[in-house]
């Protein structure tokens, strides 16, 4: 993910030899097929590795265990109970772990982007790339060892007289999981928001200052409005990342927490009431729909912000 959301308008590539879209000349079809032949392996791979599995999920989501077409799986979820609670928790968790790390990540990215040390910036980018992908089991174990009930950092805090576990902190509950998610969400935010800061031109600040604007007014009227689409868009990406995360919560709580991905995993591993097996697919479909929405919003806002970011 190291270069996620780098500017896309930059295209020194050759413009020659494009596929002739909509061309009606005889032979044009053959030529356009020949031009696009080299991308066929990629398209085939995506179709088989991503398209077919998705279709399978959509298909099973609308089938009963006996194989008949039904909307029963969907209505079971919507009727309430544990699956709806799972969605509620997942959405709450994703929302909070997109907004808080989103704001903190923006501040951090700004502090890094204004640095003049090129090497430092690239090292931070590399570290962010690793940390943003550092979800899962390893992360969970790190936090159990440091902030778990017998964790080392907790011992330090307890020695200083404040043990968070005595004040309602619990790493195995919903907000404890959220606390852990922040560790990979902030680097993800830094990764995706950094290109936006390069779009803030020095001349704008100079112009604002020559017109007598204070730093506050510069940010209020120039900086923030330009950055806002990127910030919001990136937060949608973080929302998706927090919403889809499974391994971290599973390893942390051994599946005792009601989150939708955990529930899907539990059903698949056979911990399920008879006749509810296909609910896993319906839950999966619902997740895909929600994630499509958030990534779509990311794409739209990204396009809007690219107006300023060249």
């Amino acid at each position: 993910m190291s270069d996620l959301a780098t500017e896309t308008a930059h295209s020194p590539a050759s413009e020659g030899g494009e596929v002739g879209h909509g061309s009606r000349h005889p032979g044009a079809l053959g030529r356009s097929l020949r031009t696009s032949a080299p991308v066929l392996p990629f398209i085939t791979y995506v179709a088989l590795g991503l398209g077919v599995p998705t279709l399978v999920i959509v298909n099973y989501a609308f089938r009963s265990n006996a194989g008949r077409l039904t909307t029963e799986n969907i209505s079971t979820i919507l009727r309430g109970g544990q699956y709806l609670t799972g969605f509620e928790n997942s959405l709450k968790l994703a929302l909070v772990t997109s907004i808080v790390p989103g704001v903190l990540g923006t501040l951090l990215a700004y502090a890094i982007a204004t640095s003049k040390h090129e090497l430092f910036k690239r090292l931070v980018a590399a570290a962010s790339g690793v940390l943003a992908n550092f979800g899962g089991v390893n992360l969970a174990f790190m936090f159990i060892a440091s902030f778990g009930p017998a964790g080392v950092a907790i011992k330090w805090l307890a020695a200083a007289g404040i043990n968070p576990w005595d004040h309602g902190f619990n790493i195995y509950k919903l907000w404890g999981v959220g606390f852990v998610y922040v560790y990979f969400q902030i680097p993800l935010m830094v990764l995706v928001i950094t290109p936006a800061f390069h779009g803030l031109r020095e001349s704008w600040r100079e112009a604002a200052e020559n017109l007598g604007a204070s730093s506050w007014r510069y940010w209020r009227h120039v900086g923030l409005p330009v950055l806002m689409p990127s910030v919001l868009g990136s937060m949608f990406l973080l929302f998706g990342s927090g919403f889809a995360a499974y391994a971290t919560a599973e390893a942390l709580t051994t599946g005792t927490i009601a989150l939708t991905p955990i529930q899907i995993g539990a059903i698949l591993q056979g911990n399920v009431l008879a006749g509810e097996a296909n609910i896993a697919y319906a839950l999966g479909l619902a997740m895909i729909v929600i994630l499509l929405g958030s990534i779509g919003a990311y794409g739209l806002l990204q396009r809007r912000s690219s107006r300023w970011l060249r």
């Binding site: 590539a13 031009t35 696009s36 998705t54």
Partner: peptide, 30 residues
Amino acid sequence: HLRMPRFRRVMEVVTMLPIVIPPIVLIVGV
């Protein structure tokens, strides 16, 4: 990059899709 610059848009969208399909859901389908 060389021959089908217009296809870059498609590639960009397509390579975003794995983020949309969570691994837990994808592996079930696979």
